[in-house]
Simulated assay, not measured.
Amino acid sequence: MYHDIAEVLIQEIEAGLFPEKLPTEEQLRARFQVSRDTIHKAIELITQKGLVRRIQGSGYFINHINVAEKTVVNLSLGYTTKRKKLTSKIITFDKITADASLTERYNVALNTPLTRIVRLRYLNDELYNLETAYYVDAVVPFISNEAATDSIFEFIRKAYGIYATSSDQYLAQEKLTATEAELLHKTTTEQQLTLYQTNYYGNQAYNLARTIFVYPDLNLYFHITNKMDK
């Protein structure tokens, strides 16, 4: 429940409905008709994603980072919804088992059954990235064709109740393989911004991905929260 409330509020923050701060917890409780604990968890989730900051005694203020701008990707949001007008072209959609290269790069055991989805993504009809993603069959046994061309994470959350509780992310500048270069209309001598990502539900890795960004003037944003022991 609190994830759904957080999702509504995130979309409203990005749409500019709260110029300075969120409504109070009491106002949000009355709006969504839920408990104080549910609202607190929803706001905590939004805070972790870097969209608001708490000022003791004053409430939750909006962080005015232009994450809705088309050239900014908020890595903390995890690509769970259609925040940008993205369309997809599926290149590969099949079943494989994890080989040595995947076990070396990601937290997954050798021969783990995976669903592999390779897709080109477009933002406003302009090439945005090439995404190679793997989903652990033991956690996510089925992904529909419709989801593969749309928001896979949204499908997984609705179908299985699974969402990223934590994520490992590694950024690098890497040269493309011949196949990648052909798909992206680049050369193998050029280096491209590449994101390696492992998403976890609890302690279980359920999604592994390599994303190559080619969209012009792209900026990446992420938020870190350090909790101090009381």
Rank of each mutant, 00 (worst) to 15 (best):
residue 57 G to K: 05
residue 57 G to R: 05
residue 58 S to G: 00
residue 58 S to Y: 11
residue 58 S to C: 00
residue 58 S to W: 10
residue 58 S to N: 10
residue 58 S to K: 14
residue 59 G to H: 06
residue 59 G to A: 06
residue 59 G to Y: 05
residue 59 G to I: 07
residue 59 G to F: 07
residue 60 Y to R: 03
residue 61 F to H: 07
residue 61 F to K: 01
residue 62 I to F: 08
residue 62 I to H: 01
residue 63 N to V: 12
residue 63 N to R: 12
residue 63 N to T: 11
residue 63 N to A: 06
residue 63 N to E: 14
residue 64 H to S: 12
residue 64 H to W: 04
residue 65 I to V: 15
residue 65 I to K: 05
residue 65 I to M: 08
residue 66 N to D: 15
residue 66 N to M: 07
residue 67 V to N: 07
residue 67 V to M: 00
residue 68 A to W: 02
residue 68 A to V: 04
residue 68 A to Y: 05
residue 69 E to C: 02
residue 70 K to M: 06
residue 70 K to V: 06
residue 70 K to R: 13
residue 70 K to E: 12
residue 72 V to H: 05
residue 72 V to W: 04
residue 72 V to T: 13
residue 73 V to L: 12
residue 73 V to M: 05
residue 73 V to H: 03
residue 73 V to D: 03
residue 74 N to W: 02
residue 74 N to C: 08
residue 74 N to V: 02
residue 75 L to N: 04
residue 75 L to R: 04
residue 75 L to P: 01
residue 75 L to F: 03
residue 76 S to I: 04
residue 76 S to E: 10
residue 76 S to A: 15
residue 76 S to W: 03
residue 76 S to R: 05
residue 77 L to E: 14
residue 77 L to T: 05
residue 78 G to N: 04
residue 78 G to Q: 02
residue 79 Y to A: 02
residue 79 Y to F: 15
residue 79 Y to N: 08
residue 79 Y to C: 03
residue 80 T to C: 00
residue 80 T to H: 06
residue 81 T to N: 13
residue 82 K to M: 11
residue 82 K to G: 10
residue 82 K to Q: 14
residue 84 K to F: 09
residue 84 K to C: 06
residue 84 K to V: 07
residue 85 K to F: 09
residue 85 K to C: 00
residue 85 K to Q: 13
residue 86 L to N: 01
residue 86 L to K: 04
residue 86 L to W: 06
residue 87 T to N: 09
residue 87 T to H: 09
residue 87 T to P: 07
residue 87 T to K: 13
residue 87 T to L: 08
residue 88 S to L: 01
residue 88 S to G: 07
residue 88 S to H: 13
residue 88 S to M: 07
residue 89 K to Y: 12
residue 89 K to W: 02
residue 90 I to K: 10
residue 90 I to D: 09
residue 90 I to E: 10
residue 90 I to Y: 09
residue 91 I to P: 00
residue 91 I to W: 04
residue 91 I to F: 07
residue 91 I to A: 04
residue 91 I to V: 15
residue 91 I to L: 15
residue 92 T to F: 10
residue 92 T to V: 14
residue 92 T to S: 11
residue 92 T to G: 00
residue 93 F to R: 11
residue 93 F to H: 13
residue 93 F to T: 01
residue 95 K to I: 10
residue 95 K to W: 06
